[in-house]
């Protein structure tokens, strides 16, 4: 049994993980602004990126409240290095082409809807409240990524090829979303966190259905990469953080 204080520390770390996921993916999506295949997509990507940045702020804001040591949302976003970031690796992969970003988004969006549905039941009122706001956004995100993957998969030979390549390249990073470590197990047992290991079956059912409609092949489960929760990242994250943090770190202690 964890003490009240241990539980709070664990909740803090957990919240930070969720904030990191949101910030890093939000950053990747924001890279599409002014780079989309047509104007409506620029706007849609901006919208989704904004949802994720908003989500990061809610999680970081709550983490700051739990830490209660003067750190703010910006301390978490701007003053930690890659070994301290605990986002899932799938979120830090580069934006790639439009197929790559939409396929990644589909895998993440189905997961997010399942995850947030569970987080709604969290005994932690703040986490449940964040989930309530975020799930509305994630439903819309999923509608969009689902439609795009179907259209691209069942579009031209080229678009199908690009989607399949993306799926094959990303698939090995999807397994990590369903891994539990001791911290997450403790919080799931306490009714605060989500037991993500139980989400994969439902996730896979939805994936299969969409891929069938998109005429895409489900990749084999013959490779997987993980380590994000322990700060063991791909080389991409360092560059992402370099860009994200450059101004903030160049002028230490400033207000913006």
């Amino acid at each position: 049994m964890m003490s009240e204080q241990q539980l709070q520390q664990a909740t803090f770390e957990y919240t930070l993980r969720l904030g990191d996921d949101a910030l890093v993916l939000g950053h990747r999506i924001s890279e599409w602004v002014r780079n989309g295949p047509f104007l409506e997509e620029d706007i849609a990507y901006g919208n989704v990126a904004l949802d994720y940045i908003g989500r990061a702020r809610m999680f970081y804001g709550y983490a700051a409240e739990l830490a209660d040591d003067g750190r703010t949302e910006d301390s978490f976003a701007y003053t930690r290095s890659e070994r301290e970031f605990s986002n899932l690796l799938i979120n830090e992969l580069p934006r790639g082409d439009f197929a790559y970003s939409q396929v990644r988004q589909l895998l993440v969006d189905i997961y997010a809807n399942l995850f947030l549905t569970r987080l709604l039941q969290s005994k932690d009122a703040t986490l449940a409240a964040i989930a309530a706001k975020a799930i509305k956004e994630s439903r819309y995100h999923l509608r969009r990524s689902r439609e795009w993957v179907i259209r691209l998969g069942d579009g031209t030979e080229e678009s199908q090829h690009r989607c399949q390549l993306a799926l094959d390249d990303i698939w090995g990073y999807s397994h990590e979303m369903f891994e539990m470590d001791a911290l997450e197990q403790q919080l799931a047992d306490a009714g605060i966190g989500v037991d993500v290991s139980s989400l994969r079956d439902d996730w896979l059912v939805q994936i299969r259905e969409i891929l069938a409609e998109a005429t895409l092949q489900l990749p084999a489960d013959d490779w997987k990469v993980s380590g994000g929760r322990d700060g063991y990242h791909t080389e991409f994250l360092g560059h992402l953080l370099t860009e994200l943090q450059i101004v903030h770190r160049s002028y230490p202690g400033c207000q913006w």
């Binding site: 439009f98 179907i150 259209r151 691209l152």
Partner: peptide, 12 residues
């Protein structure tokens, strides 16, 4: 860069 996306959309 977006032309293949627009083509895919039209084909679909």
């Amino acid at each position: 860069e977006g032309s293949w996306v627009r083509e895919a959309l039209a084909a679909y």
